[in-house]
Design a protein around this nucleic acid. Structure first.
Length: 282
DNA sequence: AGTGTATCCTGCAGGC
DNA sequence: TGCCTGCAGGATACAC
């Protein structure tokens, strides 16, 4: 579910609420989201203070004193919900998987209905290895059109699949892949290597514009996503193609289509995003 | 190096 | 109302 803009929105909220808190105790009602035993996870984080909150791709990172990192992948339905007091009754998390209790009495809950998410306590070296395997951050300056074009030229995979591969580019998921390809006028099934240098420039700008705009609106809530304040994101109303099958394209009025690529839906405008380049008419 | 398929889970919408 | 199917923002393993 959450992609880069949703993770970024959560990070900004958590900076206000959990930085400086010291972990007293960890409860794991659903230990399957840890990659280790609850015992060893607890031992690695207990007594540590949270010194900072960061993001890499779709991952939320809690930096602990001493150098360890709690890396949270939100999966499809994960949320990180901070509370000043242990939550009770209406409004408390519905599917708590991991609960951090702090010395101050405050609480951080990793809530995840489907439990595709993960919560891991990594040493600096383990995180570094993970980090190295991931592609560039699309909002950073080193994500250039030239580098994107060079990388695309090496791949015969459909451009939509290419964008979802975290080893190639970090943070893009199914919603923003469709949105960025629409903005750039590129059909989602085109092979990556057929994207021209000019299209790569458009795509680079489209990815950045879409992600930044989504951050500005607090992310997209389709159903479950909530930020660290428990609120929904407002970018859903701004989506041009995702989830809009048969509705008119906001740019040209043609009917938006849904297709399936690698078993996942891709939405596009058949007029703005022709299957083959050079066939555009107006 | 790709794809399709299955898997991990729960819940919701729509058809009947 | 209930039952069934398909679908969902992610990621990985497998056979081919």
């Amino acid at each position: 579910m959450p992609e880069l803009p949703e993770a970024e929105t959560i990070v900004r909220g958590l900076r206000r609420s959990v930085v400086g808190e010291r972990i007293r105790r960890v409860e794991t009602p659903h230990p399957d989201v840890l990659r280790t035993s609850p015992r060893s996870f607890g031992a690695r984080v207990r007594g540590r203070r949270i010194e900072g909150v960061g993001r890499r791709g779709k991952n939320v990172l809690l930096r602990l004193e001493g150098g360890r990192i709690i890396a949270v992948n939100l999966g499809m339905t994960g949320a990180l919900l901070p509370f000043l007091r242990p939550p009770r009754g209406p409004g408390s998390p519905t599917h708590p998987a991991v609960v951090f209790r702090f010395d101050s009495g405050a609480v951080l809950v990793f809530d995840d209905q489907r439990r595709f998410g993960t919560v891991e306590a990594l040493d600096a070296a383990q995180w570094e290895e993970r980090h190295t395997r991931m592609g560039p951050e699309p909002l950073e300056e080193d994500f250039t059109a030239e580098a994107l074009h060079r990388a695309l030229r090496r791949s015969v995979s459909p451009i939509r699949s290419w964008l979802l591969d975290q080893r190639r580019i970090a943070g893009v998921g199914n919603i923003y892949a469709s949105e960025a390809l629409h903005l750039a006028g590129i059909h989602p099934a085109r092979r990556a290597r057929t994207v021209t240098a000019g299209e790569a420039r458009l795509l680079r700008e489209a990815i950045r514009d879409v992600l930044q705009a989504a951050i500005d609106f607090g992310g997209t809530t389709i159903r479950d996503y909530r930020n660290a304040d428990g609120q929904a994101g407002e970018y859903g109303r701004r989506l041009h193609v995702y989830g809009r099958e048969d509705e008119p394209c906001m740019a040209c009025g043609a009917g938006i289509r849904r297709t399936v690529i690698s078993n996942r839906s891709a939405y596009f405008c058949p007029s703005c995003q022709p299957r083959r380049g050079g066939a555009r008419r107006r």
